[in-house]
Nucleic acid binder design. Structure first.
Length: 274
DNA sequence: AAAGATGCCTGTAAGC
DNA sequence: TGCTTACAGGCATCTT
């Protein structure tokens, strides 16, 4: 079974799961047990967010953005991050790095063994550098075959790297990139600039379909955010190629191949993808 | 400008 | 069994 790497569908599912629990509550205190995350949790975190009301939770790519009324809190789950909504009596375990104490006797707890995640306060009105140059959301109208086609002209890097570039489109990680390229029938190592417009149109459909289906499934498996440290059901969907090196293609039964592209494992079917 | 490499981390699995 | 080592991956940032 695969690890629960939070990709966009997981982050969206988490957003939907925690938003109703935290919205409308005031941040009463902050406990930081381990500030050494992707970027250090700033010393003035409490000063900046305590006393503020959580108005809602938004998502940009894989960033969760808590709307704190003219202030925001950015949370990224990195590779291994989890968020738990708990009552304050639950004893923290290893890697429970940070708690937001909320009004109404509730806790939002950030847990992240690998510490690739981030918890950063942002000014509400200014555009933060991390968010300033991101590509369109994959589920928005702005993400289109034309968009990919025009951006990719003249690019020699593999289409898989191109698809995973957050300046091109946000939220498509290694797993869904491989899956989407399979569904679109495009080999991951093909130069992005050599993929035609019709094929990019197909790829956009494949990305949307893959992500939307994963969100729908996440919604059915990720239901109880009040339960303590129970594992949530990431990746319930059947993967067509990811991690299936040497196994039979679900379409043509030829063995799935693994190829390292841009220091990342890529999986594809030599027969179904051209 | 674009592409490739690097670093940050620890749990897990594979190898000896 | 216990140790060592490779690997996984998001993404900013540095180098070429």
């Amino acid at each position: 079974m695969l690890r629960g790497v939070p990709e966009l569908p997981e982050v969206e599912t988490i957003r939907r799961g925690i938003a109703p629990h935290v919205s409308g509550r005031r941040i009463e205190a902050v406990t930081v047990r381990e500030p050494r995350l992707r970027w250090p949790v700033p010393n003035d975190l409490a000063a900046r967010i305590v006393g503020r009301m959580v108005l809602g939770v938004e998502r940009r790519g894989k960033y969760l953005l808590f709307d704190l009324d003219r202030q925001r809190l950015l949370i990224h789950l990195g590779m291994s991050g989890r968020l738990y909504v708990l009552t304050p009596d639950v004893t923290p375990i290893k890697h429970d790095h940070l708690d937001l104490h909320l009004s109404g006797n509730l806790l939002l707890r950030f847990h992240d063994p690998r510490r690739f995640g981030a918890v950063l306060p942002l000014d509400g009105d200014t555009q933060h550098p991390l968010l300033a140059h991101l590509g369109p959301e994959p589920l928005s109208e702005a993400f289109s075959g034309e968009h990919l086609y025009h951006l990719s002209r003249g690019r020699s890097s593999p289409v898989k790297n191109f698809l995973m570039d957050g300046h091109v489109v946000v939220g498509v990680g290694n797993i869904y990139a491989s899956e989407s390229l399979f569904r679109a029938g495009i080999r991951p190592g093909l130069a992005a600039g050599r993929v035609s417009l019709p094929r990019y149109v197909r790829l956009v459909d494949a990305v949307r379909d893959t992500l939307e289906r994963a969100i729908r499934q996440g919604g059915t498996t990720l239901r109880d955010f009040s339960g303590a440290h129970g594992e949530v059901g990431y990746f319930q969907q059947e993967l067509m190629v990811y991690g299936r090196d040497g196994e039979a293609c679900r379409v043509c039964e030829n063995p799935i191949r693994r190829q390292v592209i841009g220091q990342r494992s890529s999986f594809y079917c030599h027969c179904c993808q051209r």
